[in-house]
């Protein structure tokens, strides 16, 4: 079973994503900001990360840059999931090493389509 780390400061979003990902056959872990996510990744790298952009303590983009520097940090497939929906943010995310990008609001269909695109399903 593949694992996905859900990183979002909204408990509701984490809950919705968790439900969809369980239905898609993933084990999930949760983090409420980039720093918590980074600490979890240092211990154990997940197969995938569903990542919000704007969070307290450490943002999604800063987390991604740090993740990619970790040994084996290029492994996890990172899918941004954020309300930032302009080209500049998307380009910045790709440059930092994001594999896909979901613009909120999202639903199970979009999440499934994106995870399929990046070979997670």
């Amino acid at each position: 079973m593949k694992s996905c780390l859900i990183v979002d400061d909204s408990k509701v979003i984490r809950m919705v994503a968790k439900k969809i990902l369980h239905e898609l056959g993933f084990n999930t872990e949760e983090a409420e900001d980039g720093q918590v996510a980074y600490d979890l990744c240092k211990k154990n790298l997940p197969d995938a990360v569903l990542l919000d952009w704007n969070m307290p303590v450490m943002s999604g983009i800063d987390f991604l840059r740090e993740l990619r520097k970790l040994p084996g940090g290029d492994g996890p497939v990172v899918v941004f999931c954020t309300t930032e929906n302009d080209i500049e943010h998307i380009q910045e995310a790709i440059l930092a090493g994001a594999n896909e990008y979901i613009m909120k609001p999202f639903d199970s269909e979009i999440l499934q389509a994106k995870f399929t695109q990046v070979g997670l399903l």
């Binding site: 080209i87 998307i90 380009q91 790709i94 994001a98 896909e100 990008y101 979901i102 613009m103 999202f106 269909e109 979009i110 389509a113 994106k114 695109q117």
Partner: peptide
């Protein structure tokens, strides 16, 4: 644009 279109193609 989020159903099937790779993000690189969107950009």
């Amino acid at each position: 644009v989020q159903r099937g279109l790779p993000i690189q193609f969107l950009v």
